[in-house]
Amino acid sequence: MTEPFEDVVRVHGGTVLRVCRAVLGARDAEDAWSETFLAALRAWPDLPVGTNVEAWLVTVARRKAIDEVRRRARHAVPVDDPGATGTPLVAPDAGPGSRDLDLWHAVGALPGKQRRVVVLHHLGGLPYAEVAALVGGTDAAARRAGADGVAALRRTYDGWRTEEGTA
């Protein structure tokens, strides 16, 4: 990417904070926010042009927040995956350049509102009420856009996988 990173912090800082808070409490959320943006700053020059920056950041934030939950859980009782909430659409290590690139493209190809709702709810773990506050409109509308988005993803993604399987 060749855009000044300052713009990224200004545009997406609030969303990343909400994602971190959705997984952690307010105080730990701030540490996760810091780790997210420091990691993003490090990776920024090598991030391919055209990457969906919000989706990328939300995924990094969620991973950092879950790492933090794991770290704290390790001090108590070891469990396999204490941080996972809901059903992730993308594996925790997915991101630009990983093998799930097809899904990233599919998410990026969704219409604007569906894309943001899918990213914030399914990747970011935000409840629909908070998603609605970010994208505008009612909770119900956000829920509907999310369902439509996932349905569209199933269609395109399954289509691609079938093609691959038969090739």
Binding site: V9, G13, G14, L17, R18, R21, A22, G25, A26, E30, W33, S34, F37, L38, L41, R42, P127, A129, E130, A133
Partner: peptide, 29 residues
């Protein structure tokens, strides 16, 4: 959790931004 944000968040984000600049400097980034 999940408050709408507003002025409180603006201040939190300003502090976080300042912290980011400091840690970026320390990390050579």
């Amino acid at each position: 959790r999940g408050t709408g944000g507003g002025a409180g968040d603006d201040r939190v984000l300003r502090d976080l931004h300042a912290r980011l600049v400091d840690s970026a400097q320390t990390a050579g980034l």
